[in-house]
Nucleic acid binder design. Sequence first.
DNA 1: GCCGTTTTCGGCCCGACTGTTTTCAGTCG
Length: 584
Amino acid sequence: MEPTKFSNPAITRLFREIAAAYEVKNENRFKIRAYDTAADSIEHATSEVKDLWEEGRLSELPGVGEGISSHLDEYFRTGKVKHFEEIKKGLPPGMFAIFGLEGVGPKRAYRLAKELKVKTIEDLHQAARKGKIEKMAGFGRRSQELILKAIEGREQHQERILLPVAFSIAERLIEQILRLPGVVRADPLGSLRRMVSTVGDIDIGIATTKPQEVVRAFTSLPDVARVVGAGGAKATVVLKTGRQVDIRVHDPQGYGALLQYFTGSKTHNIHTRKIANERGLSLSEYGVKQYKGGKIIGEYLPARTEEEFYRLLGLPWIPPELREDAGEIEAAQKGQLPKLVEVADMAGEIHVHTTHSDGEETTASMVEEALRLGRKYIGISDHAPSVLTRGVASAKTEILNRKSEIEALREKYRGRIEIFFGAEVNIDAQARMALPDELLELYEYAVGSIHTSFDQPKEMTTRRLITALENPFINLLGHPTGRLLGEREAYEVDWEKVFEVAERQKKILEINAYPSRLDLPDDLVRSARLRGIKFVISTDAHRHEHFRNLRFGVAVARRGWCEKSDIINVNEADRFANLFKVRR
DNA sequence: GCCGTTTTCGGCCCGACTGTTTTCAGTCG
Ligand SMILES: Nc1nc2c(ncn2[C@H]2C[C@H](O)[C@@H](COP(=O)(O)OP(=O)(O)OP(=O)(O)O)O2)c(=O)[nH]1
Ligand SMILES: [Mg+2]
Ligand SMILES: [Mg+2]
Ligand SMILES: [Zn+2]
């Protein structure tokens, strides 16, 4: 499937192809790396590169400098880049069709395309089945087999998965790993430990006194479909579900260094290693060595814990959620790391649905569950009744009915859990609130959200959000970007404008903890926070188990550098009432 | 090709596994 032209995936792919072409042509290694780094950077970017280009902000992308910026400029203006076409000239086009397949890098793609005249992945499949690959120099039976399996498994090769899905896969495996002889501990690492909103593969670190045996036992677990590679220090397997799992094994003495390495991110690791070099040290997953005149010397100083590892570098421990090389290393050097908000800081929540709208439980049942989970307060915010379909008078009756139900429950639960009466109100396609002010004022608070017409032009969607923020009855924006991970892109919005209004109006932005939303996304949380904007973390619960998602919302806040003071619904006296300004 | 409270030039992270490699290249984390 071709990515859409000018989209971030298309540009990522373009740069990977340039890096590959340069690799085949034996260009300078660091020039190749530069394109690869730019590709990484764009792959992880949450704003569209095309938008950044329009705003003249391309150089804000790490790894994108003058040269690449001017190529991108040509690309967006004309649809192609002359310089890139030059670079690819003389290379068989087939190499770009097969490059990127598991185990097929630039050089192998080139040789397969050239020597076997392979033009498509289907051609490569044929060649592998006919045994043509194993006859080539540098390839063997096993390489051919891996390529065959990679092609056959590519239908199964899934997209990135949501955090709770990744956690349940990891936990299931860790349970089995902990039963293996000689295993001291096992931890989910990589993007999972950093609580990235979506996870590519499952990375697990294992502390053990018997590395070889553990790798052997792990690769023979029943969930494993095939072994991509395995040795004395690590293994890569593909599960029967098609999901890749990487393990690293290490003796318990140096496990801190392994934790640090395997947690990543890649860019965080490279940056810490660079700083180490400047201080005459060299870092790896095994610990810290001396580094003099460009040479790594001596023995490893092992680090049992991550704290020890970072201390050897002269840095405080850095929370995994921050390890994206987005300023956390500089902050650590200056002793200015934020004290991040924690799950234990959370006190209550205010975005909850019941059977009055699309929830699956009654109001009483949701209140009871919130109490059981130790919430100090709960705000019920069902979708408001539609004035369009039932008229103002009928809608008003409905709202008042819901309100008296809340008041009765408030009596019943007095002293145990506080209950607020709110609504989630649509912002319609014409940038109007779906309820008139006379009905909005019946509620104690209201969440403004977009639920229709996602494809409007950027200016219009921006205006819709701003309209909501400027409405005195709307306290916060719900799931502000509208993204549904793996299903739907965020709508196009000028966030700087929206944040400006939120800041001026002292309005709140929701961090929706529902795993396919995680909205506001972490990078936007971070820029909104810099303006002093506050957040509410909401589970948007439609049934009991959704309350459990709170930790994913807290993770987004942490990845957005939020401290307790940035969050409204934390356990601090009067914070909610004062800052949220509930109307009674 | 990128990037900078030691630099606008001269560096750029470091190691595991595979293959047929007898000393290293390719690919990946
Ligand atoms: N030093 C160093 N570490 C790396 C490199 N590539 C990967 N790592 C480390 C840091 C990564 O977080 C960790 C796991 O690698 P993955 O490829 O699984 O990436 P990660 O889990 O961060 O993201 P993912 O969700 O899997 O795409 O291994 C590298 O080139 N150098
Ligand atoms: Mg990973
Ligand atoms: Mg991995
Ligand atoms: Zn909603």
